[in-house]
Amino acid sequence: MTVSATDNKPALIRISRAGKFYGAHKVIDGMNLDIFPSEKVALIGPSGSGKSTLLRLLMTLEKLDEGEIEIDGVSMWTESMAGRKVPAGPAHLKAIRSHIGMVFQSFNLFPHMTALKNITLAPVTVLGMGKEEARQRAVELLGEVGLGHKQNAYPGQLSGGEKQRVAIARALALRPRILLFDEITSALDPETVGEVLEVLRRLAQRQDITMLLVTHQMHFAREVADRVVFMEHGKIIEDAAPGQIFGSPKQERTREFLKSVLQY
């Protein structure tokens, strides 16, 4: 695991001069950020700084207003048609999205499906995987997140931590290269946070997955991330290795922010 600055590989995610408005409010403001294959990047910053918005832009849940996002060298929001650049159509976006998965703060499991069905739905309907193959793979994934015994449980019968682990398995089932995590332990009871972080810790070991995680758990960011990005008002204030950010941040704002969250 290496820090981006010393890496010569092309970026897997390239965000250039990105801008996003909600009404007149600019929530992402001229952002530049490169993320390289297999990197684990923690995104920190005060509430309202645009962290979730950035993940939602990457998941194509929101439309970019300015600048450009490229995934593996392919522009997200434009495609070329007969040599001309045109706004991306549904098929293009679908292809882009196939590289990316997301885990939400509020799990968002499908309540009418068992844990197993939650996981097999997308591989079967989106990838066209055979039902039996999808089932076997889901069983494996549930085992990996420690829920082999909960295959037939409905979300309503699972604890928060269990739901979140199913949600992680569900995102993994599509074999994304990029996984986005938006404060996935914030809605959990303190006693179940650990089990989810444990799963994340193991995922962080994998070289085939690039992770971008928004978190308020500074010690965890420090532990698993290769890089920590501190943002505020839609801009990146500081982008450095965890040792530096948490040890001796260059920016005064970073220092203030860390002081406020760490004492709390």
Partner: peptide
Amino acid sequence: PREQYQAAWALNLSPAQALWRV
């Protein structure tokens, strides 16, 4: 909840699939 649509979207289900299955 809107989140159900978003989860379906993040799993790359088409709008019709999301409506029908989720």
